[in-house]
Design a protein around this nucleic acid. Structure first.
Lengths: 216, 216
DNA sequence: TAGATTGTTAATCGATTAACAATC
DNA sequence: TAGATTGTTAATCGATTAACAATC
């Protein structure tokens, strides 16, 4: 059997993870696909299909053990790994990410920030130093950095991404409104905020026009 | 013919918008679905299908007029509308959004921020006052606020969303890791940053394990 | 054992791609 | 007119849902 999981399935995994953690926190220790369906909003059938891509985690007549399933999904998501991470762009967004406990507590170890602005270079954000973006390639190589979070305006993004790729980065979490062109061994995950906002704008406008909106 | 556009199509619209603006800036005034396909990465067939959901914007033998198509899509996305907007949570992320020129220049008029922290209440961010989150319902009603951006920790989010709904809000742009339960006339667009990061984590892990990754 | 619920195959649905007549 | 390219119908592909035998 070949492992070829679709993006549709992959993007549901973090949601399972989140809902299972919520259940754990409520001391629920067992759940059926039917019950989970009710709270997470996917069909029971889809839940069973999704999970069975990765293994038979359930038990007939019983359902799933919440803690076990949570751990399995954590492993599948690679959350036990640790990744040296840098943030490029020490503006509001870069700082927001640097400070967000949720990322720091998972395996993403933020090591430094980088910026082009001389007034920021040398400052510290929560013990994290801000370096000159000129030095990024050298830093990535020297410090075994695996992940870069890009939080700078779009103009320079492609050229910086090229440097990161040259330096052997594994993944890029990109917040700039640009689709990067990189060798396919560099994994890019985009957060296109404007696209999200424009989707909201579309839906609001459609509602105002009295048109029917799609599910989901 | 009924208007029932799928979310898959809707989420591609902002991308068309962005690429068309890039073309406009490069003074390209005409493009075929085939050429657009090459730069945007969708098939030519899909591009024609997508656009034809909204009208016959092209011309046989010629292609599409870039400026005209850009304007059409702007209208479809509702970008000519103006929406009074508030930001809930004046932390790093709330400030990042308050300061981001891209949002301010489109029709989203940010009117104020709200926070629970007494040390922030009364301060200003770029002429925007930070108010007490206690007063939110009254403010929304009194100031014809249509959109709320939620940038606070998850605990209080559902109850604040309820207040917003009661006050007649039209849309919520939600950055908290929570799926809101609201009357269906309130439109919610989520930005689940952790889910995005975990997707990246999954893909990095799969790569490391030598598994084949899905397209897209 | 009887009841519940999984894992998995088969059926359905919807989205994408291909093809081509219409027409600029 | 000949060439290009759309708009649209038909074919294909993939994802979701339904069904049910296996089994706890």
């Amino acid at each position: 059997m070949s492992r070829k999981i679709s993006m549709a399935v992959i993007r549901r995994l973090p949601k399972y993870h989140r809902y299972l953690r919520d259940l754990l926190e409520k001391d629920v220790n067992r759940i059926s696909s039917k019950e989970l369906s009710k709270i997470i909003g996917f069909t029971a059938s889809q839940i069973r299909q999704d999970l069975n891509n990765f293994g038979g985690f359930g038990q007939q007549g019983y359902g799933y053990n919440v803690e076990e399933l949570y751990k399995e999904i954590s492993t599948i998501l690679g959350l036990e790994e640790e990744y040296n991470t840098i943030i490029i762009g020490a503006g509001n967004l870069g700082q927001a990410i640097a400070n967000y406990a949720g990322f720091r507590s998972s395996g993403f170890r933020i090591k430094a920030l980088f910026d082009i602005n001389p007034r920021l270079i040398g400052l510290k954000i929560r013990e994290l130093e801000i370096f000159d973006i000129e030095d990024i390639k050298e830093y990535v190589t020297a410090n075994n950095i695996k992940i870069a979070v890009i939080c700078i305006p779009k103009d320079k993004v492609q050229s910086i991404a090229n440097e990161l790729a040259d330096a052997g980065i594994s993944g890029i979490w990109n917040f700039a409104p640009v689709d990067l062109e990189l060798p396919e061994d560099v994994i890019v995950e985009n957060v296109h905020l404007t696209e999200s906002l424009f989707t909201l704008s579309y839906l609001l406008n459609e509602k105002k026009l009295g048109h029917e909106l799609p599910e989901e």
